[in-house]
Design a protein around this nucleic acid. Structure first.
Lengths: 256, 256
DNA sequence: GCAAAGTTGATCGTATACGATATCGTACTT
DNA sequence: AAGTACGATATCGTATACGATCAACTTTGC
């Protein structure tokens, strides 16, 4: 599936149109292509966190001058894919493990909201599609492939929130997923035990949607679902993590 | 008060540190200064929505070349302060009235969450400060000055959400407020009747916080507070607005 | 032998220059 | 008279060039 690439030419809203291709083809300005290319390499794991992005080298590899590359870096910076230090340069971000926590928590909130807003617009065929994806996930539990499972997981959730009528919120959700993708810990490889629970919760979510549940309840459920994954991660890596920062993981989760 | 200027040198997270100065002084690179200067003029209303931002002219006014200005524009674009079209140029964003709706709705969600997460960390003196600000708001109801009232309003809410331990969420809140500030409809001038209600709700919010309410309830209240402002706006300008897009304004508002 | 200052190399920041593209006005055609 | 084609102008996009800054290394003085 596409990467939900952020498009610069977007309308008034910050974009992230689902313009599919982050492909390096010959679309748009060099500035854009540089952006797409670098981003792809980050998401693809070719540039791992901490990797030093030298303007001249990037420009050289891509075959054009540094100016477009600089602009690309600026954008990546604004989307926090890279860190930038004056007169020093850019490095791939996402080293910090707490990043994962922050991102997941943020995503739990915005995705919950997006799903709730999207709910009334979800059609029967959407549900069917989601259910099919979830079935594929269930199957893949046998010969567990974390990468594939994670990809399917994203596809499943996309169906649920993609109808969100508020483009801002949708954009935030896309950014969140993007960020996770670059964070390698996002993989279910890090919380294997969570996979089957996840599938079960997905079905519950679908039932909830089919029943025409109130937006309120949908939001709670969606948020809780993600918060549960976060909790699973925390339980597994429970050590010196600054968990203390989080007095409540999901303030709106079923509060029992 | 500061503008919550976005700092580029920010850590892994997308920044928007409260680095005070959006000042045009001689801080940082020209790229930064250009960013700050242009942003200030947009927020200050000097560049109104639709205004065409010509690179050469901006560079000329600022006294340096177009390259840093281009980068500044890129950043402003990423934060959706300006729209950009290839080979055409940049214009100040925010013309679309639905933008206001989207922004307010998004803010209701992220600010609600931020306030809830912030709640356990709010000290007695914070509350006192917020109450003082609210008192000032109450007074200013007499000789109603929408600008001042709006500024105080922001200050009030800042106290409540600024302790949010998740920098991502905090950043989203800042962006939301920033965006509103550039949207001129953000002023209470557009919903004068709402002002006194707002003050009352503020006091209720403070009482809730003092009582050590559950995060869940705090989030509801904060979100509902903002949603109410949005509703007031909609009620006032209820016409051909695409209100239909919003099947629920605030899915998590007190549902009884 | 160690610390502080000087030096070198790599990389970034900005300016200038030129080619590419879109928009607008004008002239020509039907 | 209306529409289309063409050309001029404004503006953007990218390349190249050079000065500025930081980091690491070497040298010098104690």
């Amino acid at each position: 599936m596409g990467h939900h690439a952020s498009e610069p030419g977007g309308t008034t809203v910050s974009s992230t149109t689902a313009s599919s291709e982050t492909g390096s083809s010959e679309t748009g300005s060099k500035s854009e292509r540089a952006y797409a290319a670098i981003k792809e390499k980050i998401l693809g794991g070719e540039y791992t966190p901490g990797y030093r992005l030298v303007l001249a080298k990037l420009a050289d590899d891509l075959g054009f001058s540094v100016v477009p590359v600089r602009e690309a870096i600026r954008r990546l910076e604004a989307e926090s894919f890279v860190t930038f230090e004056r007169n020093v340069g850019a490095t791939v971000a996402g080293i910090d493990p707490t990043e994962y926590l922050y991102t997941m928590q943020t995503l739990s909130i915005v995705e919950g909201a997006a799903t709730a807003l999207s709910a009334p617009l979800i059609t029967g065929s959407d549900i069917a599609r989601a259910r099919a994806v979830n079935a594929a996930m269930r199957e893949s539990l046998e010969h567990f492939d974390p990468i594939r499972f994670t990809a399917l997981n994203q596809e499943f959730h996309s169906v649920l929130f993609e109808n969100c009528p508020n483009p801002h919120i949708l954009d935030l959700v896309h950014r969140g997923w993007n960020r996770l993708q670059a964070l390698r810990s996002s993989t279910f490889a890090y919380v294997p035990g969570r996979a089957s629970e996840s599938v079960a919760e997905h079905e519950a979510l679908l039932k909830l949607l089919e029943s025409g549940a109130k937006a309120d309840d949908v939001e709670r459920a969606a948020r809780a679902h993600r918060a549960a994954t976060l909790d699973a991660y925390l339980a597994r890596n429970a050590r010196d993590q600054p968990v203390a920062l989080f007095h409540e993981h999901a303030p709106l989760a079923p509060s029992h």
